[in-house]
């Protein structure tokens, strides 16, 4: 029960950091070798050598953050925000060092006057550290992954 509660709180915090645009704090949730991965279809087992919507280590995350924070990132100028809801949190595996968790998310995005909805499943591999959990892998299987994208995704879902 304790692990369940801690893991849930961690996932909520992850979503909260995205919604509040605290990009650096969000990147800090990852281990040094952590990866954020959004495969284009659920059958993919690895991001290595595969097309991916996102397949980012911390360095690429820094590039993305640097871009959106730059004053000349034109697409960042207009009103833009997201709201995540994370639920259905299930611990799949747990060992002394690591927890594997599956959950579901729903993300609503507002950009100018347009609303978009993205939803799907998160799979997290969380490393237990002295400072709390850190993300080794955040896999995002979006139900919309295969659909045509009306505009693009600018930051992590």
């Amino acid at each position: 029960m304790k692990t369940q509660h801690e893991v849930e709180q961690f996932l909520y915090r992850q979503a909260e950091l995205l919604d509040s645009k605290q990009w650096q704090a969000w990147i800090d949730l990852f281990t040094d070798d952590g990866v954020y991965w959004m495969p284009p279809e659920p059958s993919h087992r690895t991001w290595e050598g595969m097309p991916a919507i996102f397949a980012e280590d911390k360095n690429l995350m820094r590039v993305r953050m640097g871009r959106v924070l730059h004053p000349d990132a034109w697409s960042q100028r207009p009103l833009w925000g997201t709201n995540h809801v994370v639920s259905n949190v299930v611990i799949v595996k747990s060992s002394t060092n690591e927890v594997q968790v599956r959950s579901r998310f729903h993300m609503m995005e507002l950009r100018r006057d347009d609303v978009r909805h993205y939803a799907g499943a998160y799979t997290h591999r969380l490393k237990k550290t002295r400072g709390g959990y850190r993300i080794k892998l955040q896999r995002v299987d979006m139900t919309n992954a295969q659909a045509a994208y009306d505009y693009v995704l600018q930051v992590w879902v």
Binding site: G49, M50, A52, I53, L60, S75, Y149, Y151, V152
Partner: peptide
């Protein structure tokens, strides 16, 4: 192949760090 894949993912994926600003324009 990995070289072209990196370009495909970074520049041409729906999470492109490049084309987002093109589409805005």
């Amino acid at each position: 192949y990995r070289r072209s894949l990196a370009y495909y993912n970074l520049v041409n994926s729906p999470a492109t760090v490049v084309n987002a600003d093109d589409l805005e324009n």
